[in-house]
Amino acid sequence: MELSREAQMVDDLKRYFADKIIKAEIVRARRVNVEVKAGAHRDIIKFLKNRYDIRHIVTITGVDLGKDIELIYHLSPDNRQWLLNIRTKVPKDNPKIETIIDILPGAIFYEREVNDLLGVIFEGHEMPKHFILPDDWPEGEYPLRKDWKPKEGVPSARV
């Protein structure tokens, strides 16, 4: 039986990036999950862009896991036939990761959103201070972190 494009890609990733991938699997039709080690996401996204025409980024999800923040890059090939989730973690006390906007320029807004709401710093991406939050929003307040609660002195934050 001929391998589907997704299965081929998972095989390729396991072969070329064996030391950088924690897990790679097809979770259901049209969904692939790839968990990668810290710092490996750029090489893998570059490889997928060149080899599998994966140039579409749907969004970047930031998930507060407590100690870490997980970043999920939702990618899709040009024909948009399936979705690939590249997952990687950054520690919450030093949330830094290299930008991908030089590889996928469509990620500009998503990196800014995750920066603004979760406080992740995307190294190499020069961005204005705020994207969604107001200009007078206080330093160090990241409203989408789970331990963040609406508080006095933070403008227009009522729930």
Binding site: H130, F131, I132, L133, P134, P143, L144, W148, V159
Partner: peptide, 14 residues
């Protein structure tokens, strides 16, 4: 410049 009508729906759903 976005965010003028950001209502924090995601936070509200937590």
């Amino acid at each position: 410049r976005l965010g003028n009508v950001h209502r924090g729906i995601e936070k509200g759903m937590e």
